[in-house]
């Protein structure tokens, strides 16, 4: 019993570090959505796009955008602090190929206290079908999620890190972020 107590006491600092580490990890993961549950839709979809640009890759490549070139300088500024860009997009031939259950598997994660729906953005094509959610911890922006729900298309964009709508529009069509048809001047608050 004494030996067990001594062993546990020696391991206490290690256990503490593990606990603190996992707590930090859990907070950092807060803005990252779980989307792998949607992978089975690839069998029904006529086209699937899955992009994962993680923190390590973002940080490694961001520093290689030169500040001298104006385009690269803008990209460098937009990417500053971004910890990941994750995109899943499914295009279907017919309507009704995906259900509310699939949509809810993502939406349920956005109902947490740190997420709030900030905008419904008018699509250039079909009207109010793009929703933008912001993840906030205190006054810090943790990330952003965009859901585009159309009868024949379901797209989720999840950006982890300090990002706002202006940066998002600059990322459209780049780094795997699809052209969502976001028009800043036509957005309306919910």
């Amino acid at each position: 019993m004494k030996q067990l107590f001594q062993t546990t006491w020696k391991l206490a600092p290690v256990l503490m570090l593990l606990l603190v580490g996992s707590a930090i990890g859990a907070r950092a993961q807060g803005a990252k959505l779980q989307m792998d549950q949607l992978d089975f839709l690839a069998n029904k979809a006529s086209e699937t796009v899955d992009v994962k640009l993680d923190e390590r890759l973002m940080q490694t490549t961001a520093k290689f955008f030169s500040g001298k070139d104006s385009d690269d300088a803008e990209i460098k500024a937009v990417l500053k602090g971004i910890k990941g860009i994750y995109v899943k997009s499914f295009t279907f031939e017919k309507e009704g190929e995906y259900s509310q259950v699939e949509v809810d598997s993502v939406m349920s994660q956005l109902r947490g206290s740190t997420w709030s729906k900030i905008l419904t953005v008018k699509s250039r094509k079909d009207g109010d079908n793009v929703e933008v959610y912001l993840n906030m911890t205190g006054d810090q922006i943790g990330g952003l999620a965009v859901l585009s729900i159309e009868p024949k298309e379901f797209t989720i964009v999840n950006i982890v890190g300090p990002i706002d709508l202006e940066k998002l529009t600059k990322l459209e069509g780049q780094f795997g972020v699809p052209d969502l048809g976001i028009e800043k001047d036509k957005t309306k608050k919910q």
Partner: peptide, 20 residues
């Protein structure tokens, strides 16, 4: 390896995978 991009178009049996 980390997956970077995966595109699938089952009807045409087209797939692209990019790992890094």
């Amino acid at each position: 390896w980390s997956p970077l991009v995966q595109t699938l178009a089952p009807k045409n049996e087209e797939q692209t995978y990019l790992f890094i």
